[in-house]
Computed example of a mutant assay.
Amino acid sequence: MNNVETLAAIPWIVEHGGNAYAARGTSSETGTKLVCLSERFARPGCYEVELGTPVLRIVEELGGGLREGSDLTVVQVGGPLGGFLAADQLDVPLSETDLAARGAALGHAGLVAFDQRIDPADVLRHVWEFAAAESCGACSPCRVGSRRGLEVVRDSRPGEEYERLLRVMGEASLCAFGRRVPAAVHSLVRAFGDRLAGWDG
């Protein structure tokens, strides 16, 4: 099984050779990655970049910042459970290793921009809605935890139960999906800072 991104790289590799492709990117994460920028960017779309390209360069040079002069506050990387970076934390290479060090994940490498008009509580709720809807239900920590987490954030009641829920999901979920939910929540809270105080578990 190959995805479109993999197949799209084949003609370049056939023409230039595998060694030339492996020379792109970083020494530990070679090649290129397709990065999709959301509609809030001045120049949204799909761009091919070498792994290791600074996220800040992608946002400013390729994306052109945000539309209508809006101020960028947070960028979501790699999908709903990929993770979040504050606007002043974007000088990080686009790679699995470097993003993981910031509490994020490369995932599909899509970048979603949030400006000052976005209510961070809505973003937090969306993360839990996604988790509850997409959990396969194979294990209780994720199946029950994602639904209960959504109930808690809808009721705006962080506390000991919420902290325990995040801990159990992160430690006991059978697959990376359930374990990734707490990591995404923590990165979201860090990125928005005081605007989500109390929701870091």
Rank of each mutant, 00 (worst) to 15 (best):
N2W: 13
N2V: 13
N2I: 13
N3F: 04
A9E: 15
W12E: 14
V14I: 13
H16Q: 13
A20W: 06
Y21F: 15
T26H: 11
E29L: 05
K33I: 01
K33S: 01
L37V: 10
F41Q: 08
A42S: 12
P44N: 08
T53W: 00
T53H: 00
P54W: 05
P54H: 06
I58V: 12
L62N: 06
G64V: 10
R67P: 04
E68T: 12
L72R: 01
G78N: 09
G78R: 08
P80R: 14
L81S: 00
A86R: 00
D88M: 03
E96A: 15
A104M: 04
A105M: 04
H108M: 12
A113V: 05
D115G: 03
D119N: 15
H126N: 12
E129Y: 04
A133I: 14
C136L: 12
G137R: 10
C139N: 04
C139S: 03
R143H: 14
R147H: 13
R148V: 02
G149I: 09
R154N: 10
D155C: 08
S156H: 15
P158F: 01
E160N: 14
E161M: 07
A176V: 00
A176C: 04
P182Y: 06
S187G: 04
S187T: 02
A191E: 15
A197D: 15
W199P: 05
D200F: 01
G201M: 10
